[in-house]
C-alpha cells in the first residue's frame, strides 16, 4: 500500500470522525444505550449469579463484556445507512471521480468503525468500573475485549455497508438489523452463563461470531486466562472480519458498475 493511500485513508477517516463528533445526538444515543443496557440488565438479572453453576461472583462483572459486545454489534450494524446516505447525496460519486485510491475509501470505513467501537467499549468498561465491576484479568484482558469487540464491529460494519450498497434501501437494513440483533445476542453467552443455557442453544452459540467475541474477551478477562480460547476465537473473528471487508470491497466494485 503506497504512502499516498495511507495519507488518503487518514484524510477520509478524519472526515468521518469529525462528522460523528459533530452529530451530538448520534453520540448521545450510542453512549446512553449501553448505559441503559448495563443498568437495566444489571438490575433485572442481578440474582442469576446465585443460580448454581453460574460461576461468576457479581453479575455486573459478567455483564460488562456482554454489553460491550452487544453494543459493538448494534452500533456497527447501522453503518450501511451512512453509506446509503453518501450514495444518495452524491458524495461517494464525487470521491470516485477524484484520484483517491479505492482502498483508502474502504479502509476509512473500517478504521473509523474500529476506532468508534474501541472508544465505545472503553467507555462501557469505565462505566462498569464506576458501578463496581471487577476486572481480574487486568489491562491486558480488557485490551483483548476491546480488540475482539472492534473486530466483531468490523464484521457487522462491513456487512452492513455491503448490504447498503447492494440493496440501496433503508428498509432492508432496518429489517435485517431488527431481525438479527436480539437473536444474535441471546444465542450467545452475553447475559447468561453457557452452563445454564439449553444445550441446543449452546450448540448454536458455538457458531455465533458474537459468542466468539464473548468467549475470547471473557477468557482474557479471567484471573487465569485460557489463551487457547482467547486466540482461537479471536483468530476466527479476525478471519471473518477479513472476509467481510473483502466482500464489501467486492460489492463496492459492483456498485461502480451499476452507476
Amino acid at each position: 500500500m503506497s504512502t499516498e493511500t495511507l495519507h488518503q485513508t487518514w484524510y477520509m477517516t478524519q472526515r468521518q470522525l469529525t462528522a460523528i463528533m459533530r452529530q451530538p445526538i448520534f453520540l448521545v444515543v450510542t453512549l446512553v444505550q449501553p448505559v441503559i443496557w448495563l443498568f437495566l440488565f444489571g438490575a433485572l438479572f442481578h440474582k442469576v449469579v446465585e443460580l448454581p453453576g453460574f460461576g461468576a461472583g457479581s453479575y455486573l462483572d459478567y455483564l460488562v463484556p456482554g454489553v460491550v459486545v452487544m453494543s459493538a454489534v448494534s452500533s456497527n450494524m447501522w453503518a450501511g445507512m451512512g453509506t446509503l446516505e453518501e450514495i444518495e447525496r452524491g458524495t461517494l460519486n464525487r470521491f470516485l471521480t477524484t484520484p483517491v485510491s479505492r482502498a483508502a475509501l474502504m479502509n476509512a470505513n473500517v478504521v473509523q468503525q474500529g476506532l468508534s467501537t474501541a472508544a465505545q467499549s472503553v467507555l462501557i468498561v469505565l462505566l462498569g468500573k464506576l458501578g463496581g465491576a471487577d476486572y481480574p484479568g487486568g489491562v491486558l484482558g480488557l485490551l483483548v475485549l476491546i480488540v475482539v469487540s472492534a473486530l466483531l464491529g468490523t464484521v457487522f460494519g462491513a456487512s452492513s455497508n455491503a448490504v447498503g450498497m447492494l440493496v440501496r434501501q433503508r428498509e432492508s437494513i432496518i429489517g435485517i438489523n431488527s431481525f438479527l440483533l436480539l437473536p444474535l445476542t441471546f444465542l450467545s453467552s452475553a447475559f447468561m452463563a453457557p452452563g445454564l443455557m439449553p444445550s441446543w442453544m449452546r450448540h448454536v452459540a458455538a457458531f455465533n461470531p458474537v459468542n466468539w467475541a464473548l468467549v475470547s474477551g471473557r477468557s482474557a478477562m479471567a484471573a487465569d486466562p485460557d489463551w487457547g480460547d482467547v486466540l482461537g476465537r479471536g483468530g476466527a473473528l479476525l478471519a471473518l472480519a477479513v472476509v467481510a471487508v473483502w466482500l464489501s470491497t467486492r460489492t463496492f466494485r459492483s456498485y461502480q458498475q451499476s452507476v
Binding site: 472526515r15 462528522a19 452529530q23 447525496r89 452524491g90 458524495t91 460519486n93 464525487r94 471521480t97
Partner: peptide
C-alpha cells in the same frame, strides 16, 4: 473537475 447533479458536498463539514 466534476460538478454532478447531486451536490456531493459533505453537509456536516
Amino acid at each position: 473537475g466534476v460538478v454532478a447533479q447531486k451536490s456531493g458536498a459533505d453537509p456536516v463539514a
